[in-house]
Design a protein around this nucleic acid. Structure first.
Lengths: 248, 248
DNA sequence: CGGGGGGTTGATCTCCTTCAATCAACGTGG
DNA sequence: CCACGTTGATTGAAGGAGATCAACCCCCCG
């Protein structure tokens, strides 16, 4: 319920950068008109909370730009990240008034929001929106389960490699168009947040990245800008099947 | 694609033990008629695979009775359980032909199934089924995220306590009707499978259960039958907020 | 009686955490 | 322009939680 209340200039849905992937991606012109009447934008500065676990959340929305984290804190201060939100990802849950997790803006963040009650009605009126949300939620569930394998069974090195690959899959600037075996990753997170995601200490993350660098698996341009000269080699480090596919 | 092909006696949906919680719980009499025309039952013995990751899965379905696990294996043999399926839980994903995870029957298992193609049509025709599936999937996603916290940040003792509580929440025979602070849990899983769920070794699970017993937090009737004399005390061990609520 | 699955317990080792110091980059105000 | 404080990152040393290897027990069943 914090965050800046001013809206960026209202944008037409047809110009929206996330229209092909977001929850609204199956909408037609008539439905966009309805969305445009009820949607509103919210922006958050880096570090600002979008909502705390346990608070009421009266809106749902899509990330238009920026990155946010979904996390949970234990009383003694331990924290675990349980999701990472990139543009087109969805925040909030229809049918639930109380947030289950902390959501925090990592970088500057802009959301395209709807009042929860209105969105619930929207789902009833426009089944394809509900279908799209189901599709997205099933994908999220698979991602969460993949993450459970990483958290439960992988070593620090495998965890770190897996993380770099996951970011690469969503964010990478691919080089060498041909085989696409080289990638450049700009980490949106600090070492501490990466550790938080991987269930490690930040020191271990730092050491592991250094080790991967020493072994020639990655190169650091800056501490947040990482070159992967051989994606397949990194996949081996991640302990995944290297089933031929590059950046899955 | 294994499993016994004979069906148990076909059951009327109105007599079905899971009709109040399963994906069909929002259906009316007319919709039940349609389900009854297309549904079929499948049974699996304890230990049998329902489907392997990577295999085609041409049906979706609900657990009618028994328990199944969702898991993933790494090439070197490490495995991590990513879900536990009890009666009324849903298996399979509309829109996906290839299973993402291994599903295995833990005890004798009976599923109420639909051909995937037919179920996809069903969702289009009957929006409330899709809505119910969305609801269930969102709940699963929250459960998966809670599990990520357990896997990433909790100690062996906290993990074990959390697991016992989770089973208690779904399975417990409550005693002392008044305050409901005592519960009896019948573990559906071996120590090995519990370890698999918690991202631990089976030895650590065994030691931790012994330790909890020595500390009076739990009592063992048999190795699979566990008495929780004071649920609140176990919640403290789990490292969760003991926000008053008993068995959430 | 033998065999096997499930469970417990012990000894050792190792990977990761913890605590701590140091460093690099960056901005700010004197 | 340079001291400084701050934030993020790296590196080192020590300790511990849990894995691993291995023995043993218990109970059921053939």
């Amino acid at each position: 319920m914090d965050g800046k209340d001013f809206s960026p200039e209202i944008r037409a849905c047809t110009d929206c950068p996330i229209k092909h992937r977001a929850v609204c991606s199956t909408c037609g012109p008539a439905e966009f008109l309805r969305l445009e009447r009820t949607k509103f934008y919210r922006s958050f500065d880096a570090g600002q909370p979008v909502v705390w676990a346990g608070d009421r959340l009266e809106f749902v929305g899509s990330v238009v730009s920026g990155v946010a984290t979904i996390g949970q804190a234990m009383e003694d201060g331990r924290t675990q990240m349980v999701g990472l939100l990139f543009p087109s990802d969805f925040i909030g849950r229809p049918g639930r008034a109380i947030a289950q997790y902390d959501v925090t803006a990592v970088s500057g963040l802009t959301l395209c929001c709807f009042r929860r009650s209105q969105f619930e009605q929207l789902i009833k009126d426009v089944p394809r929106i509900g279908q799209r949300l189901l599709e997205m939620t099933l994908t999220e569930l698979d991602a969460a389960r993949d993450w459970m394998v990483i958290l439960g069974r992988k070593t620090a090195r495998e965890k770190t490699a897996s993380f770099l690959l996951a970011i690469a899959r969503r964010h990478a600037t691919l080089q060498h168009g041909g085989n696409c075996n080289t990638a450049v990753v700009d980490l949106p997170l600090t070492r501490e947040l990466v550790a938080n995601y991987l269930g490690l200490s930040l020191e271990t993350v730092s050491r592991t990245i250094t080790a991967l660098k020493k072994d020639g698996i990655i190169k650091l341009e800056k501490s947040r800008s990482i070159v992967i000269p051989d994606v397949a080699a990194l996949m081996v480090e991640a302990g995944d099947d290297v089933d031929g596919g590059v950046l899955g």
